[in-house]
Amino acid sequence: MTDQSPEKSEGAQAFPDSFDLEGEFARSNVQAVLEKLDRELVGLAPVKQRIREIAALLLVDKARRSMGLETGAPTLHMSFTGNPGTGKTTVALRMAEILKNLGYVRQGHLISVTRDDLVGQYIGHTAPKTREVIKKAMGGVLFIDEAYYLYKPENERDYGAEAIEILLQVMENQRDDLVVILAGYANRMEVFFQSNPGFRSRIAHHIDFPDYSEKELMSIAQLMVDAQHYVLTPEAQKVLRDYIPRRMKMPHFANARSMRNALDRAKLRQANRLFGRKDRTNLTRHDLTTIEAEDLLQSRVFQV
């Protein structure tokens, strides 16, 4: 069965002398995912750029391997840093899709966890718990939100250390089976990496998610409104534009997520307004889709 003909000794294998990068790119469907990313996510230019670079790297890597150029399996573990609501989870989902399309993960699903999913309550609880999560994520992406909570330097007996050890082992030995993305606030992540050099050295891509500008938040809100088949009246749009800078100054501001929450509450008030109407027998399509200025003005943001 093995080819033992003398011409085909090792090193003289017949490799193709050209690679159709264009065709490979088209077949991978990555373009479609990148376009979807562009369409569905406002701003985030540096993030999108990094994702394009990673996709290019993986495609070229594939081309190189097809010509027998040994590169070593690429490390794809990443860290996503940024404030809450800047799109880290959303981008991780797209990342999983891209890695699947390029053949770097087999299944392409994403399992999102925090410390509580990995770390147990008593001796002997942590290892099986961590392993259970890793098993679920195999063939896909494991997204660990607020990863720094895994490490509690003030308590040297903390079980988090056990989870970290298992994760590091899998990140090193099973790079073909699992991609790990660590996410959290930039400064706390920095501290975490300093005290856990094992993680730093296993992560190839650090991507920073900037806060959104007022204008971007407005576009994000508009995108969400459209996607949910609502319409903001011109007055409502003006109120929302006024709402954003006020909300940004308040505590617990969470970028795009705050926009989503504001719209959720506006939808609630709209429903309430329609329900409280005297004449409820002839609601029109227009009534059902329109968010009025008053639906936003009742927010506590305008009360202070």
Binding site: R106, Q107, H109, I134, K135, K136, M138, G139, Q174, D177
Partner: peptide, 13 residues
Amino acid sequence: MFDTKDPAAVMLE
């Protein structure tokens, strides 16, 4: 393993 998507998970065990 009921909700395992990938053989690598079983191989781990």
